[in-house]
């Protein structure tokens, strides 16, 4: 079994290094590699081979987790371009975008006190969902035309949307718990 660690995550799964991918193919190749690298297969192998298999399995896992999620995949593509997000030190964002984010967060904050919290939450989720899917489309377009600076801007904004999506999910779980 040959696994070249100098390959990027896409190449590890014999995929093209592009954003647009068939996730079912990724799933399939991941399972194949997992089978090949399963510890049982190395039970009678040398120490060196066993160590290698553990390393390889962890690399494959990391690659899979990165490529499976669209935002992480987009981030990784930027990384391959040598572009850093400077997430903590670069706080300059489009003010209109931030204003919109503030409003969405305010709307989410009002959900619990709304007369119909589920409907209010649904409204926020729907708006957020369409923004996230717009981001994915816009990233694909920018990456395809190799406008990496625009692609970076999109990913920086997408991070805010993803964070809010997680908060929406946990609020949804809280509301469901309160219901039962």
């Amino acid at each position: 079994m040959q696994l070249d660690f100098s390959n990027n995550y896409f190449e590890l799964f014999e995929l093209q290094t592009v954003f647009d991918m068939d996730v079912s193919v990724l799933d399939q190749r991941f399972q194949q590699l997992q089978r090949v690298l399963h510890p049982d297969k190395f039970a009678s192998a040398s120490d060196a081979e066993r160590r290698w298999s553990v390393q390889a399995a962890s690399r494959v896992n990391e690659a899979y987790q990165t490529l499976k999620q669209p935002l992480k995949r987009a981030n990784y593509l930027l990384e391959l371009q040598g572009l850093m997000l400077n997430e903590e030190t670069d706080t300059q964002m489009d003010p209109m975008f931030l204003m919109e984010q503030m409003e969405l967060r305010e709307a989410l904050g009002d959900v619990e006190s709304a007369s119909d919290p589920f409907a209010a939450l649904d409204k926020v989720s729907t708006q957020l969902g369409s923004q996230i899917s717009d981001s994915a489309d816009a990233f694909l377009a920018s990456a395809t035309s190799e406008d990496w600076s625009q692609a970076r801007t999109i990913v920086r904004q997408w991070q805010f949307l993803e964070k809010l999506r997680q908060e929406t999910k946990s609020l949804e779980a809280r509301l469901d718990d309160a219901e039962t």
């Binding site: 931030l98 204003m99 920086r156 809010l164």
Partner: peptide, 13 residues
């Protein structure tokens, strides 16, 4: 002043 940190998704006005 509106700023935001993509790392944590924090928004500050």
């Amino acid at each position: 002043g509106m700023v935001g940190a993509p790392a944590c998704g924090d928004v500050m006005r």
